[in-house]
Design a protein around this nucleic acid. Structure first.
Lengths: 141, 141
DNA sequence: ACTTTGTAGTTACATCTGAAACCAATTGCA
DNA sequence: TGCAATTGGTTTCAGATGTAACTACAAAGT
């Protein structure tokens, strides 16, 4: 084994990031699914629709960094569960106009605080200085 | 929309981590696949086998943080490509004993420097202080 | 008006993934 | 010894994912 490049996975950055992110999002996914029957993609779509209403599917895709197929499917499921409502833009019949339904808002109001709380719990492990650095680092990458 | 919890996805930490990690690993995956026909799971298995030889599939799973199904499949593919060799432990016939083959080492010696270089390119965006913080932060999470 | 080109969204297909069921070997314990 | 519980590893099945093809509409150029 001598003479070979040394690559220790445990200290390899992309790997560690990936593990961390997967661990986190799986933990979250489990909660969303068990308590609300929502997948992560569905919740992301709901999150952007809670933040800005009456946008098109393409905009949802942009703001969630998901591809349009994933978005299309997530929206179809949300529509089936009646958590969102869909119309068609008057000026351009290709575009959909999406917003949370009454029922959707009820779920949103339960999940959003939960998500924020989850973030808090994670950040609680870091001191304030670390938090700031992390934010900056994520910005630059 | 008044009276609802505000959750801005763009500044939500688990979300940002997930996007960053996905972007990174997809970029890497593309390279590994195009140039070496390796999936990320396959490469991870090879990486741990390059670092410590003659370990079992379970140990590979532990060290890669992948589940045993994923590992089993990755190893099967690597075996089919003759990049690894597999034996059976004498003291426990359930355990496999895995190591990189001659051919496997050749690939390893090409990929490992590439991976490290990739990490370097990523870290190049950060100043030394940020690097240290990032390492520490990942440690604590 | 007509044709080309581009865009929003859906569908089809092939691949990937994880949970659970499964087999074989080992361990613990009565 | 003999039987239940565990563990390493594979297979199966069902759901998730991405690429490419497709439909419907819109915009631009002729």
């Amino acid at each position: 084994m001598a003479g070979h490049a040394l690559l220790e996975l445990d200290s390899f950055l992309p790997y560690r990031l990936s593990v961390l992110s997967n661990t986190l999002s799986q933990a979250i996914a489990r909660v969303y699914d068990k308590r609300f029957g929502l997948s992560v993609t569905e919740w992301r779509a709901m999150a952007v629709l809670g933040y800005n209403a009456d946008i098109s599917a393409r905009e949802v895709a942009e703001r969630t960094a998901m591809d349009k197929v994933a978005v299309s499917r997530a929206l179809a499921r949300l529509l089936a569960k009646k958590l969102i409502e869909r119309g068609t833009a008057t000026h351009d019949k290709r575009l959909s106009v999406l917003r949370l339904s009454e029922e959707g808002w009820k779920i949103y109001d339960q999940v959003a605080p939960l998500a924020l709380e989850h973030e808090e719990r994670m950040l609680a492990h870091l001191d304030p200085e670390q938090r700031e650095w992390l934010a900056k680092i994520l910005d630059t990458l």
